[in-house]
């Protein structure tokens, strides 16, 4: 009962935080992705033709939606938890009888909510440019939730280890963005040379984008079952890492 109330308190606080600043959190992805759809989908895509039987616009919609989910679930947790550390109001949670798993679940849920909400906003924007289809809702929603969870947890780890505001921008700028763009959002793995077809297998985001694309339009470059298992495995691994960091008090306790 006590833990449930504490968890609900953290979730409400986190969701209220990003809703309160919606011009910074929800509006920019709507504008950015509208531009993606317009430039890559409409203007350039019309000259590219089809990929695996799908129009280029239909092909890039799932990737762009999931890319938004990834970046916003990550940035929500990393900025919120680091600010909590920076302002020292993490002490409110450490002093209170709140178990570590509740702290983690609360912040991760905040990130998942923002990631999914941004995903919905982008999906709605995509409807202005393409017919949105969801062939397998279970896989589509499942992959979106798992991806948002994975990157919320990754953002949490980044925030715990960060010692300055610079540290929370390094991973999104130099790791997440390149991996997202190179993860097959705008192209099929088949379009790459042999070397890059092998190299891209080391990019975890490629698996998630392909599984999500499979859920929406039934097109994938990889084995969806493997992608789902891999994502679930990484989520479990990241949960463990987060709990160990919290138990040790890394970055939040002396």
């Amino acid at each position: 009962m006590n833990n449930r109330i504490a968890l609900w308190t953290i979730i409400k606080k986190e969701v209220y935080r990003f809703l309160r600043i919606w011009p910074q959190t929800l509006l920019p992805p709507a504008i950015t992705t509208a531009l993606y759809f317009l430039i890559f989908g409409k203007l350039i895509g019309s000259r590219i033709g089809t990929i695996s039987g799908a129009t280029y616009m239909d092909y890039i919609v799932p990737g762009i939606i999931l890319m938004s989910v990834i970046s916003h679930s990550y940035s929500n947790v990393v900025s919120s938890f680091y600010s909590t550390k920076f302002q020292r109001n993490i002490e409110e949670l450490i002093v209170a009888p709140v178990p570590n798993w509740v702290i983690l679940a609360g912040y991760a849920t905040g990130g998942i909510c923002r990631g999914l909400l941004v995903g919905i906003v982008v999906a709605l924007i995509s409807m202005l440019f393409a017919d949105l289809t969801v062939l397998n809702p279970l896989i589509t929603v499942g992959v979106a939730i798992m991806t948002a969870t994975l990157f919320s947890l990754a953002g949490f780890i980044n925030a715990m280890l960060a010692e300055s505001f610079d540290d929370i921008s390094i991973i999104p700028n130099f790791v997440l963005t390149p991996l997202s763009y190179l993860g097959g959002v705008f192209y099929s793995v088949d379009m790459l040379s042999d070397f890059w077809q092998t190299a891209i297998l080391g990019n975890p985001i490629m698996y998630m984008i392909n599984a999500f694309r499979y859920g929406m339009i039934g097109v994938t470059d990889i084995d969806v079952q493997f992608a789902l298992l891999m994502t679930a495995g990484v989520v479990v691994g990241l949960i463990m890492v987060c709990l160990v960091l919290l138990h040790k008090g890394v970055g939040i306790k002396n």
Partner: peptide, 19 residues
């Protein structure tokens, strides 16, 4: 405390953390 929260929010959240 969070300098962007209201006075009510700060105290109310703390009550929530204590279940």
């Amino acid at each position: 405390f969070n300098q962007f929260d209201t006075v009510l929010g700060i105290v109310l959240n703390q009550a929530g953390y204590y279940g």
